[in-house]
């Protein structure tokens, strides 16, 4: 390892490749602008490859891991659909508590489980905040932010005050709680199911076999295409010293997508030939024939009972 130049050592990052050698005249002291395309591709790769290969939670022994995928999908998606029918906060809160319990019983890491709250529910919270105000939602003012006392702004008469209303708060909390329940249920389903089994559960929801087979094949080649994208990206950053104009970056992204399309098209022809040579006749056959246990039926029954109970609220 000592003979290797510093930039080839495993821990070196592409940032180090891009620093100019001492001999070259540097145009400015500030480092080259981080190319948006570059950081985005790297983000994408870490995110996707992390998720595609992360079967760690699914491999643990836990409650949801022991349930057959079809029953688990049916039960959890059933609760999810039911949650969109609930009108008051109490059943939604019970649903969320149930999600927490299931996550704990299935040993889903708290980081993964609570991390999803930062995406959709947080975003929802931000966009729903204006709806708590009296100008959007009529109601009893709870917290007055600003009294205008009928002030005029040019030709417009302002409303007499700006306040958070009780019904606004109710709408907002119901909206955010509902999105939190929904994303939590999806995380519970996907994190406790192995990648290779995830789509088999869709057959329980009535999705045709051909669709599931195509989904499974897609899942396999997604990995290949993402790796191709990574290579295209690496080839570019290892040949460029400074970032270029927006226009050039755009044509680079387009060329990357175009090259990827050619690869996709060629690969699909090869995959088809490989399928033919292995005896593919147009009929999709899957190897699995999972058997259901009593606990699967118990789980489904409990989920159905919960749904029936909460919808009575």
């Amino acid at each position: 390892m000592d003979q290797l130049p510093e930039w080839m050592l495993p821990q070196s990052t592409p940032d180090q490749w891009r620093t100019l050698p001492d001999g070259l005249p540097q145009k400015s002291a500030r480092p080259p602008r981080r190319s948006a395309a570059r950081s985005a591709v790297r983000e994408m790769i870490t995110l996707v490859s992390g998720m595609l290969t992360d079967d760690a939670t699914a491999a643990r022994r836990g409650l949801l891991q022991s349930i057959d995928t079809r029953f688990k999908t049916l039960g959890l998606i059933g609760i999810l659909v039911a949650s969109t029918f609930m009108h008051s906060l109490v059943p939604l809160a019970i649903c969320y508590l149930m999600c927490i319990t299931l996550a704990a019983a299935s040993r889903v890491s708290a980081r993964r489980f609570l991390g999803v709250l930062l995406v959709v529910p947080f975003f929802s919270l931000v966009i729903v905040l204006p709806a708590t105000l009296n100008i959007v939602t009529q109601g009893h003012p709870v917290w007055t932010i600003w009294r205008t006392d009928g002030m005029h702004l040019g030709p417009w008469q302002l409303p007499c005050m700006l306040a958070v209303t009780d019904s606004g708060l109710f709408i907002a909390s119901r909206f955010v709680l509902r999105t939190a329940v929904c994303v939590s249920l999806v995380v519970l389903l996907t994190s406790t199911t192995r990648w290779s089994y995830l789509f088999h559960g869709l057959r329980a929801l009535g999705v045709p076999q051909l669709f599931v087979a195509v989904l499974n094949m897609m899942q396999r080649y997604l990995d290949v295409l993402i790796r191709s994208a990574e290579q295209i990206h690496l080839a570019k950053i290892s040949r460029s010293i400074t970032s270029r104009s927006t226009r050039q970056e755009q044509s680079w992204v387009a060329a990357g997508i175009g090259a990827l399309f050619r690869r996709t098209y060629r690969l699909s022809g090869q995959v088809y030939l490989a399928m033919l040579s292995r005896g593919y006749t147009g009929e999709v056959k899957l190897l699995d024939s999972p058997r259901s246990h009593i606990r699967d039926w118990v789980f489904l029954f409990l989920a159905a009972a919960l749904v029936a109970l909460l919808l009575r609220f």
């Binding site: 591709v41 051909l210 897609m218 080649y221 295409l225």
Partner: peptide, 26 residues
């Protein structure tokens, strides 16, 4: 014909990857 299965699977994967390419704009 039968080519649909791999072409659709790969087309779907391609569509997925396109959505993850961030494009610099104005």
């Amino acid at each position: 014909r039968n080519r649909q299965v791999p072409l659709l699977a790969l087309g779907a994967a391609f569509s997925f990857v396109i959505m993850m390419f961030n494009v610099p704009a104005i």
